[in-house]
């Protein structure tokens, strides 16, 4: 399990105290470092809920998330904040840039939250800005950008602290097809070059097909968890057999498409 970056165990989420909404039930899976995965499902199926739980933005009603060996079940808000800052980058459908700050300042922010001085962060910030083709926009106000540029700044900011895991919730929901394609190509490039693991929420099956692993959520349950064929042997694949049927991870041989027979995921037996 050395390479397990994220261990989600029996995750459940029920919203509301009086009118209860069960948004997620018994979701378990492991994500290895450097994996490029997507979460798909219909609207309201629980994709965002799941992403927010594994991103430590929300706390599960049942189960636990182990991030990079840190069991977060009993973690304080402060500890979860530190883990988010250290290991996770977020990209949402809305860019959430800080309008009071420039492009460069927005990108520096995760590093400054970590307590690093601006001078020490500068080279890294320039690196990620260049990586996203944002050179020359450093001094611009966050509001003075196009939609595509804003989203790229948001991605640059998410990459600032070299996160092991980048979580993206409909990251291209507000972008046109050209920008959408560019963002996913970029994600793939970052995944290959930096080894950043990705979990991308999308309702677009064709986008999901481009990823190495697809977790499909339906009515709050993990309907299937499949690997696209073209990942051959890697640390991710090697670790799988030990886990047994609980996670239901199957690596199909050839087919990039989802195999129906791999589709059912039982709640894991209690260990």
């Amino acid at each position: 399990m050395a390479d397990v970056l994220l261990h989600a165990e029996d995750l459940g989420k029920t919203y509301g105290a009086v009118a209860k909404t069960v948004a997620l039930t018994a979701v378990s899976f492991d994500l290895q470092g450097g994996e490029f995965a997507s979460i798909i499902g219909q609207s309201g199926s629980g994709k965002s809920t799941l992403l927010n739980l594994i991103g430590l933005l929300d706390t599960p009603t049942t189960g636990r998330v182990v991030l990079n060996g840190h069991d977060t079940a009993a973690a304080s808000r402060k500890q979860r904040a530190t883990l988010r800052n250290d290991f996770i980058g977020f990209v949402f459908q809305f860019h959430y840039l800080l309008p009071e700050f420039s492009v460069l300042e927005n990108v520096l922010m995760p590093g400054r939250i970590a307590g690093v001085s601006v001078a020490d962060l500068r080279p890294r910030a320039e690196e990620v800005l260049a990586l996203l083709g944002l050179e020359g926009l450093e001094g611009k106000g966050a509001n003075d950008l196009s939609g595509g540029q804003k989203q790229r700044v948001a991605i640059a900011r998410a990459l600032m602290n070299r996160p092991a895991l980048l979580l993206a919730d409909e990251p291209t929901g507000n972008l046109d097809t050209v920008n959408t394609k560019a963002v996913y190509e970029l994600f793939r490039k970052l995944n290959r070059e930096l080894g950043t693991a990705f979990m991308i929420v999308t309702h677009d099956r064709s986008v999901a097909q481009q990823t190495d692993r697809i977790l499909e959520v339906q009515d709050g349950r993990l309907l299937q968890d499949v690997r696209n064929s073209y990942i051959e042997a890697g640390p991710a694949a090697e670790a799988e057999p030990e886990r047994g049927p609980a996670a239901g991870d199957v690596v199909p041989d050839e087919e990039p498409a989802l195999e129906p027979e791999t589709s059912s995921v039982e709640p894991p037996p209690s260990v």
Partner: peptide
Amino acid sequence: TRQIGILKAMGMKDRE
């Protein structure tokens, strides 16, 4: 609120 929320999502502590 939105700015504070995103700062916290990025790991800013409650106290800060």
